[in-house]
């Protein structure tokens, strides 16, 4: 029971959410909030690997999300929709269900390769200097896409809805909701497996004492490569999902504002805690929606809340503890491996 309870709970909640959406109990708006929540969970959990576990200050996460969003969008538009430049659809609609996760995977892979822009300098540089490099990487990505007319440049890129429609034409259920939930579970699960292994514990070892890590046989360059590439790859996955939820992407939705938003979620949740990252992503998304009636004042209230949080609980909601560390009794009911 304890061994499988988590899996069962996840499958059950996914089934319930899908059913609710399918039979119209939750409207389009709530669905999109849930999907954004999923995307935010992936983003904050993946950034937590670098900013929390590895102790580097990466502030260009939006850039990798952007790479993933564009790479997977170009894939799906190429395959399933009619585009002036990329031509007629290459595959019949019936293939969409298999091709879509593949496109997401391609987006993630391209984004993790883009992660090299940051990973390679990180061998020699750290701290503030590396933070500047990550910032530069974000700008590089945005301006590269801004200048690529073939994918719309600053006007943005669209046509992803054709793929979503194609999936619906096979079986008419809320596919994007399902993919987002699957993607979120996959991301948190893969990160959890990584950081709980002896291999993955090399990452906090770098954070706590890099020299000791190197002398004690941890290949620090390899660990940094893995951490940055895994982190940016998952950001790319989040980007791919985000692009297909909205059906439209614009390079400027992934600029420094987006990166800051993700960073806020990481520090809100607690560095080096996956449950913290998940929790804070959920709370942050909800907060943004709840405070929507305040309009522009929202951006006064939220930063103010952040300042207060940092004053009274600087380690974030969870510190570097997981939920099962804070409430050991929970271990009886679930194990997440």
């Amino acid at each position: 029971m304890q061994k499988h309870s988590f899996t069962i709970a996840m499958i059950a909640s996914m089934a319930v959410l899908t059913a609710l959406a399918q039979f119209g109990f939750i409207n389009q708006y709530i669905q999109s909030v849930i999907m954004l929540m999923g995307v935010n969970i992936i983003l904050s959990a993946s950034l937590n690997l670098v900013n929390g576990y590895m102790g580097e200050f990466s502030c260009g996460h939006g850039g990798f999300m952007c790479v993933g969003a564009y790479a997977s969008s170009v894939m799906t538009v190429l395959l399933f929709s009619k585009n002036q430049i990329l031509g007629a659809p290459l595959l019949p609609e019936s293939m969409a269900l298999f091709a879509f996760p593949l496109a997401l995977a391609v987006g993630a892979a391209v984004a993790s390769v883009a992660g090299l822009i940051v990973a390679v300098p990180s061998f020699k540089t750290r701290g503030d200097y590396l933070a500047i490099i990550t910032l530069a990487a974000n700008y590089m990505v945005i301006s590269a896409i801004d200048n690529l007319e073939i994918i719309g440049g600053p006007r943005g890129f669209m046509g992803m809805n054709a793929t979503v429609n194609a999936m619906n034409s096979v079986v008419n259920i809320p596919w994007m909701l399902i993919w987002v939930i699957l993607g979120t579970i996959f991301s948190v699960w893969i990160l959890r497996r990584f950081v709980s292994s002896t291999l993955g514990k090399g990452v906090p070892a770098i954070c706590q004492d890099e020299i000791a890590a190197e002398i004690m046989s941890v290949d620090t360059n390899r660990m940094k490569l893995i951490a940055f590439m895994l982190s940016s790859g998952l950001a790319g996955l989040a980007g791919g999902l985000f692009a297909h939820i909205l059906g439209y992407v614009n390079p400027h939705s992934f600029d420094i504002m987006k990166s800051t938003e993700v960073m806020v979620m990481v520090y809100l949740g607690g560095m080096g805690s996956l449950s913290g990252a998940t929790l804070s992503a959920v709370l942050f998304t909800l907060l943004l929606e709840v405070l929507r009636p305040l309009e522009i004042w929202k951006w006064v209230v939220i930063p103010l809340l952040l300042i207060l949080l940092m004053q009274f609980r600087p380690e974030g909601l969870m510190g570097n503890k997981e939920l099962s560390d804070l409430f050991p009794k929970l271990r009886k009911y679930y194990s997440f491996k």
Binding site: T198, L199, K201, C207, I211, A213, M216, S217
Partner: peptide, 21 residues
């Protein structure tokens, strides 16, 4: 002393075995 301060003793000893993972 250069131990990894936020890791328990057991993990400190485990991580040092990275070369023979």
């Amino acid at each position: 002393i250069r131990l990894w301060g936020e890791m328990n003793v057991l993990d400190n000893i485990r991580v040092a075995q990275h070369y023979t993972l």
